[in-house]
Design a protein around this nucleic acid. Structure first.
Length: 459
RNA sequence: GCCCCGUUCGUCUAGCCCGGCCUAGGACACAUGGUUUUCAUCCAUGCGACAGGGGUUCGAAUCCCCUACGGGGUGCCA
C-alpha cells in the first residue's frame, strides 16, 4: 500500500472555527497514526475574501493546537506551491487535458465541465426555470464512514469562472491529483460535491481518493438550529486560546465530537488520541457542541499537568491581572498553585480565586461577608491571633493543633473559627484547603492580615 | 420542490457491520447525601434514551420497508 497523504485545505476567510479545527485534527491524527503526510493547502481562490491576517491566525491556531504540517506554507515540500493562488499554470495544464478530451464547453464566458449522457430540458422548481439536465450514470462513493453512497450529477458545472478564476470543484480535484492525496477526510457538507469530484477524477482517468465524510458540528439547541457557525459562542479556537484553555484539552474535546474510543476513556492526550484514532469509529450523526463538557475536559487536563507545566500556564493567566511578575518568589508561587490546581477548573477563573495569595488588596465577597460576620466574628479572630503569632513551627499540623486546643478551651467547634479566618485572609468563604492554605500563606501574612482585620472591624 | 446523509438518556457517546451476554453501559449536566475541618474539588446514590409504525425471526437498539423529524446540498462561495 502506498503511503498515506492527507490534506487539510482551508480557505482563510476569517477566524478559525471549531469544525475547521476538527477537520484538521482528524486529518492530522490519521497521518500521524499511519506514518503518512499531513499536507496543508491554502484554498485562496476567492481573492476578495482572503486576508493575510486570517491566514496568520489560522497557522497560529494550528500550531497552538500542536498540529504541525509536513508540507505547506512556511515549511515547503515537493508538491508546492501550497497556495492555490500560485498554482495557475497547473490548472491551465489540467484544463487543457479536459479540453482535449472534449469534456468542456464555454457558455456566458465561463468554462463548463460536460457530463456524459442524454440531454433534455426540464422545469426546475428550485431555479424556477427550464434547465438543461443530463441523463448521466450514477456515481458510487465508497465512504469509509457511511458506506456506499450513490448520487447522480445531472447538470454541467462551472470549472472556470467568466473572470478567469478556476472554481473550487476544479482546483480541489486538480490539487488532490497533483499532490497525490490518498484520503479525503472532510465534512459531510461536501458529500453532495463528491459526485462532481468523482466525475472530474474519471474525466482525468484517475482513480479518486478514498473518501470519509464526517458529521457536522451542530449548534447547542439552546442557541438555535443548524450547524455551528462562527458567530456562535464557543465556536472560535482563538477564544480558547485567549481564555487560557489548554490546547491538549481543546484537541481532546474536539476529537470527541463525532468520535470516541471503545474503552470508555475520555480524557486523552494527543498521543493517546493518535494511538486510538480510527476513521471507521467516527460517528455518522451530527454532534452538538457542549461548553460544559469542554470545560470539564479542560479541568481534567489541568489536574493532570505536572506542577511545572501547570505553573507555566497559570502564571500566564496571573500575569494578565498583574498578580505576579518576574520578582514573584517561584517557590511560593508553586506552593500556592499546587493548592489551586486541585480546586479551580479553569485558568480564566484562577486570578480571582488565587489573588489573595499575591496581594493584600484582594476583593471582598459581600455575600461571604454577610454570612461570616454574623455573631462574634471579630472576637474569634482576636482569640486566634495571639496563639498563631507565637507559633514557632508553621506547618498545617501545628496550626491545626492551635485551632483544636482553642476550640476545646472555649468549648466550641473548630468550625467557629475556620470561616472567619478564611474570610479575614482571603475575603471570601471558599478557596483552597484551609490548613494548607494557612501554611502556604506563611505566618507573617496570616498574622498581619488578622491584625488588619481586627483594626478595621473593631471601631 | 428535488437529491444525499442522518436519528440510543437534556448533551457527547458504547452497543448496531457479525440479531440473544442490553432489566441498554460510560461521561458531562442536573438532584440528593457524605467528606461531621472550610471549599468551586473529591466520593456515593439518584434522575434519565433505543423517533413512530409495520415486517423478518423462537428472539431486534441491532436486519428490511414506510412515516416523521433533523442536517447538508441544489452558486460563475469554499
Amino acid at each position: 500500500m502506498s503511503k498515506v497523504r492527507v490534506r487539510f485545505a482551508p480557505s482563510p476567510t476569517g477566524s478559525t472555527h471549531i469544525g475547521t479545527a476538527r477537520t484538521a485534527l482528524y486529518n492530522w491524527l490519521y497521518a500521524r497514526k499511519t506514518g503518512g503526510s499531513f499536507v496543508l493547502r491554502i484554498e485562496d481562490t476567492d481573492k476578495e475574501r482572503n486576508t493575510e491576517a486570517a491566514l496568520q491566525e489560522l497557522l497560529d491556531g494550528l500550531r497552538w493546537l500542536g498540529l504541525d504540517w509536513d508540507e505547506g506554507p512556511e515549511v515547503g515540500g515537493d508538491y508546492g506551491p501550497y497556495f492555490q493562488s500560485q498554482r495557475g499554470d497547473i490548472y491551465q495544464d489540467y484544463l487543457k487535458k479536459l479540453k482535449d478530451a472534449g469534456r468542456t464547453y464555454e457558455k456566458d464566458g465561463a468554462i463548463f465541465f460536460k457530463l456524459e449522457g442524454e440531454r433534455f430540458t426540464e422545469y426546475d422548481d428550485y431555479h424556477k426555470a427550464e434547465v438543461e439536465k443530463v441523463e448521466s450514470q450514477p456515481v458510487v462513493i465508497e465512504d469509509l464512514i457511511r458506506g456506499k453512497v450513490t448520487r447522480r450529477e445531472e447538470r454541467d458545472f462551472v470549472i472556470v469562472r467568466s473572470n478567469g478564476d478556476p472554481s473550487f470543484h476544479f482546483v480541489n480535484v486538480v490539487d488532490d491529483i497533483a499532490m497525490g492525496i490518498t484520503h479525503v477526510l472532510r465534512g459531510e457538507d461536501h458529500l453532495p460535491n463528491t459526485s462532481k469530484h468523482v466525475e472530474l477524477f474519471n474525466a482525468f482517468g484517475i482513480t479518486p481518493p478514498i473518501y470519509a465524510h464526517m458529521p457536522m458540528i451542530l449548534k447547542d439547541p439552546k442557541l438555535g438550529k443548524g450547524k455551528m457557525s462562527k458567530r456562535d459562542k464557543g465556536a472560535l479556537i482563538e477564544e480558547y486560546k485567549q481564555r487560557d484553555f489548554l490546547p491538549e484539552a481543546v484537541t481532546n474535546f474536539v476529537a470527541l465530537l463525532g468520535w470516541s474510543t471503545k474503552d470508555n476513556q475520555e480524557v486523552l492526550s494527543i498521543d493517546e488520541l493518535t494511538e486510538r484514532f480510527e476513521i471507521k469509529d467516527i460517528q455518522k450523526g451530527g454532534a452538538r457542541f457542549d461548553e460544559k463538557k469542554m470545560s470539564h475536559i479542560n479541568f481534567e487536563h489541568m489536574k493532570r499537568l505536572p506542577i511545572e507545566k501547570y505553573s507555566e500556564a497559570a502564571t500566564s493567566a496571573l500575569r494578565k491581572e498583574s498578580l505576579v511578575d518576574d520578582s514573584t518568589d517561584q517557590e511560593y508561587l508553586q506552593a500556592a498553585l499546587r493548592l489551586c490546581q486541585e480546586k479551580i477548573d479553569s485558568f480564566e477563573n484562577l486570578p480571582s480565586f488565587a489573588a489573595f495569595f499575591f496581594s493584600d488588596a484582594f476583593a471582598i465577597n459581600e455575600k461571604a461577608q454577610k454570612k461570616v460576620m454574623k455573631g462574634e466574628a471579630v472576637l474569634r479572630i482576636q482569640e486566634i491571633t495571639p496563639p498563631l503569632k507565637s507559633l514557632e513551627e508553621w506547618t498545617a499540623e501545628k496550626i491545626e493543633a492551635i485551632f483544636l486546643s482553642l476550640a476545646e478551651e472555649k468549648e466550641l467547634k473548630p468550625f467557629a473559627w475556620f470561616p472567619v479566618v478564611r474570610f479575614a485572609l482571603s475575603g471570601t468563604n471558599s478557596g483552597p484547603d484551609f490548613l494548607p492554605m494557612l501554611e502556604v500563606l506563611g505566618k507573617e501574612r496570616v498574622v498581619s492580615r488578622l491584625n488588619t482585620f481586627i483594626e478595621t472591624h473593631s471601631a
